[in-house]
Structures are given as C-alpha cells and as structure tokens.
C-alpha cells in the first residue's frame, strides 16, 4: 500500500544517513520553521556563491521521518539554483504534496522529491513534508521583500 511504499529504502536512507544535516559555519541566511502540533523543528541555512546561486544548503533540528527526509532531499536539490528557481521548486513541491500537480514530467524537476508524492494521499502529513520547503521559501521571500541581495550577510 501507498504508505509503506513511502517508507522505502531510498526514503529511509535520507532519514538514517542525511547528507545535509549539520550546522553550517558561514551561512548567509538562516531561518527556523516549526510545526507546533507535531513538535517538528527545523533550522535551515544557505550560503550563496558569488553568482547568487545557492552554493551550500544544510539543516538541523528534529521531527518525524517525513520532515527530516524532506529536508535532506530538498537541500540536495537546491545546490546550484538561483533563489527564483528555488522558490519555483518549493511551489512545485507544495503543489505535489497537496495533490494539485500530478504530471510526471513536471514533477521530474523535483528529482528525489518525488519520493514524497504519496503524501498527497496522506493529508495529515502534508505539513510534515512541507516544513523544509516552506521554511526555505519564507527565507527567500524575506530576502526578496527586503530588496537585499540574497547573499547580504545582514540576513544571517
């Protein structure tokens, strides 16, 4: 069934052996996200390259397997993306987990993010899956609103 498919070996590898779960030393931006009803807490950090693309992404925090795997998958996807591209991917991911975007070709852009597509059938877990993406999107939106270059260290 769908739920046990979700917790497959590839997904669990992101939970048990996350590549991007560490404290970043020289972050340009850091932003916290919480799901008060689940107790999920996540702090997401990025460092930008000179050309404005995301050079490094990492997270710390704790929560359910879905929130943790989602953060690891997202971090990997965001390396090399501009803030605009990153926000578009966040939007696409959130549409996928809410069941609003189901087109296979369109979802390919999310790479390992599609491991979480079955969340669309698990409404109670949407906010777990979204936490990292919502946190990144908020952080980048804040940068855009403030009219600052994303690499402005004042955001950190």
């Amino acid at each position: 069934m769908a739920t046990t498919d979700l917790y497959n070996a590839e997904f669990m590898d992101h939970v048990s052996h996350p590549d991007y779960k560490y404290q970043m030393e020289d972050a340009d931006c850091t932003h916290e996200g919480v799901n008060p009803s689940c107790g999920d807490e996540l702090t997401f950090s990025v460092r930008f390259a000179d050309d404005g693309t995301i050079d490094e992404a990492a997270f710390t925090g704790h929560g359910c397997a879905i929130s943790q795997a989602s953060a690891d998958i997202m971090s990997d996807l965001m390396i090399g993306k501009t803030p605009e591209q990153a926000r578009e991917l966040c939007d696409l991911f959130m549409r996928m987990v809410r069941g609003e975007e189901t087109d296979e070709a369109a979802l390919e852009e999310l790479e390992d993010g599609v491991l979480l597509r079955d969340i669309a059938h698990m409404p109670a877990r949407v906010k777990c899956a979204e936490l990292a993406w919502r946190t990144l999107d908020e952080m980048l939106a804040k940068g855009a609103e403030g009219g600052q270059a994303p690499s402005d260290p004042a955001e950190a």
């Binding site: 979700l6 689940c38 879905i66 109670a124 877990r125």
Partner: peptide, 8 residues
Amino acid sequence: HPHDVASI
C-alpha cells in the same frame, strides 16, 4: 516519531 508509527 509517533506520526510515522501511525502512518505505517
């Protein structure tokens, strides 16, 4: 996490 337990 209990939510993972319940989902499985």
